[in-house]
C-alpha cells in the first residue's frame, strides 16, 4: 500500500494521538498538552472539510449519552458512595432534564447549545438541591472535619519544610518575611518622620501666618489712627489759613495807611495833623515807631 493509499484515520483519534506525541512544546509549556490538542483539533477540521461527512441523528446520540451517564451515577449511588445523597439527586435531575429536552422535540446540533438547553432546564432545581445540601448541618460537619484535617496537614507540612530548609542553610519564606518586616518597620519610621515634618510645617506655616496677620492688623490700626487725626489737622490748617488771610488783610490796610501818611507828610498841614495823631498809641507799635522815627527825621 502506498502512502497515498493509506486509509484515513478517524479525525478524533488523530487529535489524541498527535496531542500525546510529546514534542518540545508539550514538555516545556505547562499548557502544552491542551495546546497540542487544540492544534490537532484544527488539523482535524481540515480533514473533515473535504470529506463527505455522514449526517447522524443527534437525538439518538444524546439519548445514548444520557442513559450511559445516568446508569453510571446510579450504579455509584447504589454502591454507597453517596453520603450526601448528591448522586441520587443528580440522577433524578438528569432524568428530568432528558424529559424536558425531549418534550421540546428539538435537539441542537452543537454540544454547547445542547448543554445550555440542559443547564436552563436543570439549573434552578440543581441550585436548590445543592443549596439544601451545603446549608445542612451534615455537610457542615463534614466540611469542618475536612478543614481541620487540611489545616493540620498544612501546618505540619509548613513546619517540616521550614526545618528542612533551615537544616540546609537555605532561607525560607519566614526568613524573607522577617526581612520584609524590617523594611516595613524602617518605612514606618520614615512615615512617622514625614508626619512629624508635616506637622512642623503646618505649625510653622500657621504661626507665620498668625504673626503676619497680627503685624498687618497693627499697621492697619496705625493707619486708621493717623486717618482719625487727619481731619483735626486739616481743620487746624484751615484756621491757620484763615488767620493768615486776616493778617494779610491787616497788613494791606496798614500799607494803605502808610501810603496815606506819606502823602500827608508831603504837606505842612498834614505834618501837624500827623504829629497830633502820633500822640495816640497804635496797635502795631513797631511799625508806628518806625513811622514816628521817619516823622522825626
Amino acid at each position: 500500500m502506498t502512502k497515498e493509499e493509506k486509509p484515513e484515520e478517524p479525525a478524533d483519534s488523530n487529535v489524541w494521538k498527535k496531542s500525546m506525541d510529546g514534542d518540545k512544546e508539550t514538555s516545556l509549556d505547562p499548557y502544552g498538552l491542551y495546546r497540542a490538542w487544540l492544534k490537532s483539533v484544527g488539523e482535524a477540521q481540515e480533514q473533515i472539510k473535504p470529506s463527505s461527512m455522514k449526517m447522524f441523528d443527534l437525538k439518538e446520540v444524546w439519548q445514548q449519552w444520557f442513559e450511559a451517564t445516568t446508569a453510571a451515577w446510579q450504579s455509584a449511588a447504589e454502591k454507597g458512595a453517596d453520603p450526601l445523597g448528591l448522586t441520587t439527586q443528580w440522577s433524578e435531575m438528569m432524568e428530568e432534564a432528558r424529559a424536558k429536552i425531549s418534550a421540546e422535540g428539538t435537539i441542537a446540533a452543537d454540544p454547547f447549545t445542547l448543554f445550555k438547553q440542559w443547564y436552563d432546564a436543570t439549573s434552578e432545581t440543581w441550585s436548590k438541591a445543592v443549596g439544601d445540601i451545603i446549608g445542612s448541618d451534615r455537610f457542615m460537619q463534614m466540611a469542618s472535619q475536612f478543614l481541620e484535617s487540611y489545616t493540620s496537614f498544612a501546618r505540619t507540612f509548613h513546619r517540616a519544610s521550614e526545618e528542612y530548609f533551615s537544616n540546609l542553610q537555605l532561607p525560607t519564606r519566614s526568613d524573607i518575611a522577617r526581612v520584609a518586616e524590617l523594611v516595613i518597620n524602617v518605612e514606618e519610621k520614615v512615615d512617622q518622620l514625614d508626619l512629624a515634618f508635616e506637622g512642623l510645617e503646618d505649625t510653622y506655616a500657621q504661626s507665620t501666618t498668625s504673626e503676619a496677620i497680627a503685624g498687618l492688623a497693627g499697621r492697619l490700626d496705625g493707619v486708621e489712627n493717623k486717618l482719625d487725626v487727619l481731619p483735626a489737622v486739616l481743620q487746624k490748617l484751615a484756621t491757620v489759613e484763615r488767620l493768615e488771610m486776616r493778617l494779610d488783610r491787616v497788613e494791606n490796610r496798614l500799607d494803605q495807611l502808610l501810603l496815606a501818611l506819606e502823602k500827608i507828610e508831603a504837606t505842612p498841614q498834614a505834618v501837624r495833623s500827623t504829629n497830633s495823631t502820633r500822640k495816640s498809641p497804635g496797635p502795631r507799635s513797631g511799625s508806628t515807631k518806625g513811622q514816628a522815627g521817619k516823622a522825626k527825621v
Binding site: V41, Q45, I48, M53, M55, A108, A109, F112
Partner: peptide
C-alpha cells in the same frame, strides 16, 4: 443550525469557538 443533523461548516465554526472558550478556561 439544523436540528438532528450537522454539516462540516457547522463543525468548523464550532471548533473555532470551542478553541476560544477552552483558551479562556485554561489560561484564564
Amino acid at each position: 443550525m439544523s436540528q438532528g443533523s450537522t454539516t462540516p461548516s457547522d463543525f468548523e465554526s464550532t471548533f473555532q469557538k470551542y478553541q476560544t472558550g477552552m483558551e479562556i478556561i485554561l489560561e484564564g
